[in-house]
Amino acid sequence: MTSLLLAIAVGSLFATGTYMIMRRGQIKLILGLALLSHGVNLLLFGSGKLTAGRPPIFLDKKHYTETLAAFQPADPLPQALILTAIVISFGITAFVIVLVNRRHTVTATDYVHGELVPLLREGDPFDFSEPSDIDQYDWLAYEVDEVYDSDDLPLGFPPTPQSEQDESAAMEEESYRWP
């Protein structure tokens, strides 16, 4: 009976988690991931014996086999596994929350799908065609904050314009000051 209840709980957690992941919003995604990890934890719990009122460790060295047969101590390993899994899923959930928050900040959207950023573009929000300045987007895709050279370069290394040198030096100065 207990195992049936446990199986039902695991199954419903999995089902709910899967459903939540399939939905469109990012917060629901986080909830779905959390529910799935709870489902797995319960399944790990069920992989041990469901014993009530028996301690996992006992300290009678002399009559080891007899006491083992008589008391049937609880299995401590699933608890240890679940503890590890909880810690890991906690860390990952925290990371996902920060990532979702950051994504919401930089793209101003809550939808999981969408390569481009509809809400930041002018005009039709459902126009998913490539913008004409896609190269700029490409470049922004992996550079945080950089000094760019202004126009096409000839062979060899041209001297940096004085203004950019100043800017670069200023950035470097600032970076020293930041903690």
Binding site: R103, V106, L140, A141
Partner: peptide, 25 residues
């Protein structure tokens, strides 16, 4: 996860969500 999204540019966060969720599954 962190190497993929470090810098947190829009494209990186977009792809980061998919990468994280599918790998977590």
């Amino acid at each position: 996860f962190v190497l993929l999204t470090i810098g947190a540019q829009p494209a990186q966060t977009n792809s980061g969500i998919r990468y994280v969720v599918l790998n977590l599954l």
